[in-house]
Design a protein around this nucleic acid. Structure first.
Length: 648
RNA sequence: GCCCAUGUAGCUCAGUCGGUAGAGCACAUCCUUGGUAAGGAUGAGGUCACCGGUUCAAUCCCGGUCGUGGGCUCCA
């Protein structure tokens, strides 16, 4: 007899060996039916693999993240076997489950076409129909290498070379065998609904020096309805894409007549940006920052001294020759702030110095990485540099982290990821400097009790950093705030301050941006709000809609009163029906529509309609003004805005 | 940068198996003055991204350039 302990603490006794499936059957027929795999002592385990000794067992269904992983990973094996059936000679490489689905990378001369995908789907359907069981085989390294060498699977051999385990496992269904840790679904028939979504080129191991493989992405579910729902949600998400909303709401455009990655801010977008910047200035003054302003180009010598020419040149635009001087368009603001520091003798009494600038920089990002507002070539950083003494450093980093979180929360963000980025391969400074600086940042994070992940090798060339990322609407992560330690520039520029001991010391330096850049922050805001900007940001807070021509005068007098109260509103008195004009205001995502007809005119009130919600009924003007002012003051966000749009 | 896809009116998209293009919305004018998401009529609007090639003829086929989209380790 062996003892099987369940997640709820209850224990069941079985004759050994027992399988996860038998355990599930004992618990309930429903669980047995939904069971996909198990975990044994916390590690994923095939449902039909014998358990010989006392264990903690959890049965995995599609509701468990690990269950989904098994489901998707198995589907990727099914896809691989279909591809090998249809296109003999294709080498398989790796095919993991990812957060939403799976992919598999193949080495094949010809990329897959959409027609190929259809064929592959049909073949997968056959393989699922034929319901092959998955068999796990364990073998030692020599045999594994022999087997995959005979199969001609070079990539698997490369993987095997890196494994440290003595025993590896393979999974076989039908006549397809793949090197795989597992576990898998019991059989191919477990996959009920799937779809291949896209193809892409992907470098072997993500390294562009390696061969480009052909990747196929897909997803699967235990029910067709779940697949349909998933596809619907993806479609809905596309409507919140900042590029789509940017056009629809006339916020910005990027056109090749200007250049890739260069943004034209339309009046409405520029207004929102202005509000964001105004808030930024106010908060920076409150937090002890002073403003500076600096030019867009500078003598190339500055960039030689700073090290940018050596370490950042691939992202820099070519230099300009003029009057026997070579100028360089700036990719960063830091050297300028440093020169301001150097313009005077600094005392320890002056520190910390905090200088901020909305500084526009140009970076030649690789063409394939450009993406709407989220990765551009001309951008305005909400930059600042802090110069301080060594012992002020922990305090200053802490202040910046708190400041950053305060700023982001003011916009309603409450979900972000925080990373500690360590030394990259191409970088300056000694090992000791990196070690000390990284530890300092780590300590600050830990003292503040902040959860973070380590991004190994993700630091700037001049020092380690803390990054805050926000996710876009399709789950892609983008860097927002960044707080970077720099022990390079103060040395290169020979910065100093006079300490209380009367001697010269080198200051520490922090680079930081809280929004990251105005462009990217705006892009994430558009998606976060789904275009429904909160009142304090909305370019037009209310639209006044007279029912017919005879109410135009009243409409104008209402608009006047609102203007005087500081509310941004327009009158739409075009000779269109009220329904039409409401529809237009809704499409433009204008927060309030004020409908004015005979009833309102007579009693001197307004009828208030809120976007996405509908008619709120009548209100007097003062009450409405107070309500709007209150929401503006609180930076209140519309509840409906952060939810997925219903289908319209 | 690399792989694949793609570029037609302001926007969203049809279309031409090679004979210089079409819809809806938006826009303009007129009619309509209408109570909470599309009233009607008429009209204007395109070097079919750009450069080159094949052809009697190219928006369509071919090559190149530029742009855009998806992707380029969430490791067996």
């Amino acid at each position: 007899m062996i003892k099987i302990t369940l997640p709820d603490g209850n224990a069941l006794e079985f004759d050994a060996p027992v399988t996860g499936r038998q355990v599930a059957e004992k618990i309930s027929p429903r669980l047995a039916k939904a069971a996909l795999a198990a975990t044994k002592n916390g590690k994923a385990f095939d449902l039909d693999r014998p358990i010989e000794e006392d264990s903690e067992i959890k049965i995995l269904t599609f509701d468990d993240p690990e269950g989904k992983e098994v489901y998707w990973h198995t589907t990727s094996h099914i896809m691989a076997s279909a591809v090998v059936r249809l296109f003999p000679g294709t080498q398989v490489t790796i095919g993991p489950a990812i957060s939403k689905g799976f992919y598999y990378d193949f080495d094949r001369d010809k990329p897959f076409t959409p027609d190929d995908l259809e064929e592959i789907e049909k073949e997968m359907a056959r393989i699922i129909q034929e319901d092959y069981s998955f068999h796990r085989t364990e073998l030692d390294m020599d045999n594994a290498k022999k087997q995959f060498s005979e199969m001609g699977e070079d990539y698997k051999l490369e993987l095997l070379d890196e494994f440290e385990d003595e025993i590896v496992s393979t999974y076989t269904h039908d006549d397809f065998t793949d090197l795989c840790r597992g576990p898998h679904l019991p059989s191919t028939g477990y996959v009920k609904a799937f779809k291949l979504l896209s193809t892409a080129g992907a470098y072997w191991r993500g390294d562009e020096r390696n061969k480009m493989l052909q990747r196929i992405y897909g997803i699967s579910f235990p029910k067709q309805k779940m697949l349909d729902e998933h596809l619907r949600l993806v479609e809905e998400a596309k409507k919140r894409d900042h590029r789509v909303l940017g056009t629809q709401l006339q916020l910005f455009t990027i056109t090749d007549e200007i250049g890739a990655g260069l943004v034209l801010w339309f009046p409405k977008g520029a207004f929102i940006r202005h509000q964001i910047e105004k808030f930024w200035y106010e908060e920076h003054f409150k937090n002890g920052y002073k403003l500076v302003n600096t030019p867009h180009i500078a003598s190339i010598d500055l960039w030689k001294t700073s090290g940018h020419l050596d370490f950042y040149s691939e992202n820099m635009y070519p230099s300009l020759e003029l009057d026997n001087t070579t100028y360089q368009l700036k990719p960063m603001n830091c050297p300028f702030h440093i020169m301001i520091y150097k313009s005077d003798i600094r005392s320890y009494r002056d520190l910390p110095i905090r200088w901020a600038e909305l500084g526009t920089v140009y970076r030649h990002e690789r063409s394939g990485t450009l993406h709407g507002l989220l990765r551009v070539r001309g951008l305005t950083m909400d930059d600042a540099h802090i110069f301080c003494s060594a012992d002020q450093m922990p305090q200053e980093t802490r202040r910046v982290i708190e400041f950053s979180l305060h700023m982001l929360r003011s916009f309603g963000f409450d979900k972000f990821n925080i990373y500690l980025s360590t030394r990259p391969p191409k970088s300056v400074g000694s090992e000791e400097q990196w070690e000390a600086a990284t530890e300092s940042l780590r300590n600050t994070l830990e003292e503040m009790g902040i959860d973070y992940e380590v991004d190994k090798g993700g630091g700037a060339f001049y020092g380690p950093k803390i990054d805050v990322t926000l996710e876009d609407n399709l789950g892609r992560e983008w860097q927002c705030s960044t707080i970077q330690f720099d022990f390079n520039l103060p040395e290169r520029f020979n910065l100093s301050y006079i300490g209380s001991d009367g001697k010269q010391h080198t200051p520490y330096m922090v680079h930081r941006a809280l929004y990251g850049s105005m462009e990217r922050f705006f892009g994430t805001l558009i998606e976060f709000y789904g275009g429904y900007f909160p009142l304090w940001l909305a370019p037009e807070q209310a639209r006044v809609l007279p029912i017919s021509e005879k109410h135009n005068d009243y409409a104008r007098s209402v608009a006047d009163q609102l203007h005087k109260a500081g509310i941004r509103c327009e009158v739409d008195d075009r000779s269109e029906k009220i329904g039409y004009r409401i529809r237009e205001a809704e499409n433009q995502k204008i927060p309030y529509m004020l409908i004015l007809g005979d009833k309102e005119k007579e009693s001197g009130v307004i009828s208030v309609r809120e976007h996405k919600v509908g008619d709120h009924g009548q209100s007097n003007i003062d009450d409405f003004v107070r309500m709007v002012q209150e929401k503006v003051r609180n930076k209140e966000i519309f509840e409906s805005t952060t939810q997925t749009e219903e289908k319209s």
